[in-house]
């Protein structure tokens, strides 16, 4: 069996908490013993809320943050200590806010050419890349401010594809977009994934999108994967209370979806926070 495109083994990262004078006051474990495998051509989703560690995992996969312990392997080769240039030829990232991730003073063509030059690819590929993301070729001469949000995100995708990566890390790639634009960008990502054999690590808090775009999902809570499995199964039959709370919180637009949401006990007439719900469950288990 061939190695998975992305494998994460027991990844851990803690950040120091510092006092106002720079002294160490403690540590917060942002990522706590996370392991996952993504097969070539598969789409794996990391679902979690703020503080869950999903962006820290993304940064470590990108080689932007060094893990404290654990290993990250791309096609079976560890990336720890590998030169970042070689690494970036294999892994690229699409960020959440295309308005901020594109240089406003570069035209679309220049932005894409930077990536091509850095990896020794011919500059003439700009036109092909724009074709791939279904933008007209003359967009190469436009500046980001002349583009809509969806068009900017397509440019960001074209730039990421310029180096012909194996793995794309998608960090909330559509959360800044209108829903109709989001649908088109997701469709594009699906087409590209199929045509180019790309592997995706998709990071999002949007569970409905997760359900539609990913085959497998890991639910992150405070740095730990509390539940993982095929997305359809996890959503239909969530085992962990945090997954249940997340699913119960999603605003949906049909009765069928509403029926899928688990019932969550109210605490003093209010929806509990994750901490409250987990504490309640623990207390229940103790009293049994």
């Amino acid at each position: 069996m061939s190695a998975p495109t992305l494998e994460i083994r027991n990844l851990t990262k803690t950040f120091p908490i510092r006092t106002a004078f720079g002294g160490k006051a403690g540590a917060v474990t942002a990522v706590d013993d996370v392991s996952l495998r993504v097969a070539a051509g598969a789409v794996y989703g990391l679902a979690g809320e703020s503080g869950s560690g999903k962006s820290t995992i993304a940064r470590m996969v990108m080689g932007l943050t060094r893990p404290d312990s654990g290993d990250i392997l791309i096609d079976g080769q560890s990336i720890i200590g590998v030169k970042s240039h070689a690494h970036r030829g294999r892994v690229q990232m699409v960020f959440q806010n295309p308005g901020a991730s594109l240089n406003p003073r570069r035209t679309v063509g220049q932005s894409i050419r930077v990536a091509l030059d850095a990896h020794g690819k011919p500059a003439a590929r700009v036109g092909d890349l724009l074709d791939m993301v279904q933008l007209p070729r003359h967009f190469a001469d436009r500046y980001p401010h002349e583009l809509s949000g969806g068009q900017k995100q397509r440019v960001a995708i074209a730039r990421a594809l310029a180096v012909e990566p194996r793995l794309l890390v998608l960090d909330e790639p559509t959360s800044a977009l209108d829903v109709s634009v989001q649908a088109k960008v997701i469709e594009l990502l699906e087409d590209l994934g199929r045509d180019l054999g790309l592997t995706y690590l998709f990071i999002s808090h949007d569970l409905s999108l997760m359900r539609n775009f990913t085959a497998e999902v890991g639910v992150l809570y405070r740095g730990r994967i509390v539940e993982t499995g095929p997305t359809a199964r996890v959503f239909a039959d969530p085992q962990h209370d945090y997954t249940r709370l997340l699913l119960a919180s999603v605003p949906v637009i049909s009765d069928e979806e509403a029926a899928l949401r688990p019932d969550i006990p109210l605490i003093n007439g209010e929806l509990p926070t994750a901490e409250e719900l987990l504490a309640l469950r623990q207390a229940e288990r103790k009293s049994e």
Binding site: R211, N212, I253, E257, L260
Partner: peptide, 9 residues
């Protein structure tokens, strides 16, 4: 409405 991703898949 068709563009909204569904929790049911």
């Amino acid at each position: 409405i068709a563009a909204v991703p569904r929790l049911t898949g």
